[in-house]
């Protein structure tokens, strides 16, 4: 298992090199002058030339790329063209917020999704089932900025239970996490239901019933455990999606995450910020994939055996 994890982490290196190269090229090929960005509106030609030199933009493409990589390895991600701050500081100030929000939203989506999906499947075609199917449909199709606004209007402005925008503590996390997680919740609910309906019909579930187990134990211990693989897959995908930073939700709730940072950086042609964010995301995706695979092994001994065989 350790070998397996190490090998997968080693795969991060080509992934990061590839992704950063592509992004670097795109940023280079799209129109716009970063030096202009850096200097603002009023500058002289000399200032422009010297700044071009200072930022290393006079050098050939490949040299610039390699020096970015070289510096990044030493933990230096450069200076933002627009704010003139160290990129690392900019990102460290924001990425944890995105991470916290994404984890909270995912936690909410998985917990509620599995519970709702399980009840739906266990009571197939009941009123609960059709209601939850209908709700899931709404949950998937509802634009989340609108839902976020509704939450603010009702629970923050109206009832005053939660702060609407000030960024403080667990309480301020609740509404944005719900707004952000609702889409995923609907998807996970549907996936849990369909996967569980599949396993509930299996012979081993009847065996469990024939042992005299209580019905909830039959469902949770025997059917749900076997239904977990597709639920894990979809949750991993959703997590990747949530962690990309939700521009809209961040805007609605004034949440200082990387979603807005990235959009602004792209507009301002702030290459160092864009590159670093993309590298962070690629890393996160790889780590989430790895986490998903480890979860598979946790739930299914057949997959565990496969990993062991490959790792040896």
């Amino acid at each position: 298992m350790h070998k397996f994890i190490l090998r997968r982490l080693a795969m991060l290196i080509p992934v990061i090199l590839g992704v950063s190269f592509i992004v670097f090229s795109i940023m280079d090929l799209t129109p716009g002058d970063p030096v202009e960005m850096y200097l603002g509106d009023n500058y002289t030609d000399e200032a422009h030339a010297s700044m071009t030199k200072e930022l290393g933009l006079d050098k050939p493409f490949i040299v610039r790329y390699l020096s970015f990589i070289g510096n990044a390895i030493q933990g230096d991600f450069g200076i933002s063209y627009s704010t003139h701050q160290r990129v690392l500081d900019e990102i460290l100030a924001r990425f944890p917020n995105t991470l916290v929000l994404a984890i909270a939203a995912l936690f909410f989506a998985i917990l509620a999704g599995i519970i709702l999906g399980t009840i739906s499947a266990a009571k197939q075609n009941s009123i609960f089932d059709s209601t939850s199917t209908f709700a899931a449909l709404i949950g998937v199709s509802m634009p989340n900025f609108w839902f976020g606004l509704m939450l603010i209007i009702i629970f923050a402005a109206g009832l005053g239970w939660f702060p609407s925008s000030e960024f403080s503590g667990v309480k301020s996390l609740v509404l944005p996490a719900i707004a952000l997680g609702t889409n995923s919740l609907a998807i996970i609910t549907r996936m849990t239901r369909s996967s569980l309906l599949e396993t509930i019909r299996q012979d081993y579930v009847r065996t469990a019933r024939a042992k005299g187990l209580k019905e909830y134990k039959v469902i949770i211990k025997h059917a749900l455990r076997n239904a977990m693989i597709p639920i894990i897959t979809i949750s991993g995908l959703q997590f990747g999606f949530l962690i990309s930073g939700a521009v809209v939700i961040e805007t609605v709730f004034s949440w200082p995450g990387i979603g807005r940072l990235l959009v602004e950086a792209i507009q301002l042609k702030d290459t160092p910020i864009v590159l670093s964010l993309v590298v962070i995301k690629a890393t996160m995706f790889t780590v989430i994939n790895l986490g998903t695979d480890i979860m598979y092994a946790f739930f299914d001994p057949r997959i565990r055996a496969q990993y062991k065989a490959k790792g040896a």
């Binding site: 299996q202 012979d203 081993y204 009847r206 065996t207 469990a208 024939a210 025997h222 455990r225 076997n226 739930f299 299914d300 001994p301 057949r302």
Partner: peptide, 16 residues
């Protein structure tokens, strides 16, 4: 107790 017709599918794959 019951012994089911198909032993291949009667056991739960995820428990020892």
């Amino acid at each position: 107790s019951m012994i089911f017709q198909d032993p291949m599918t009667s056991l739960n794959p995820v428990y020892s």
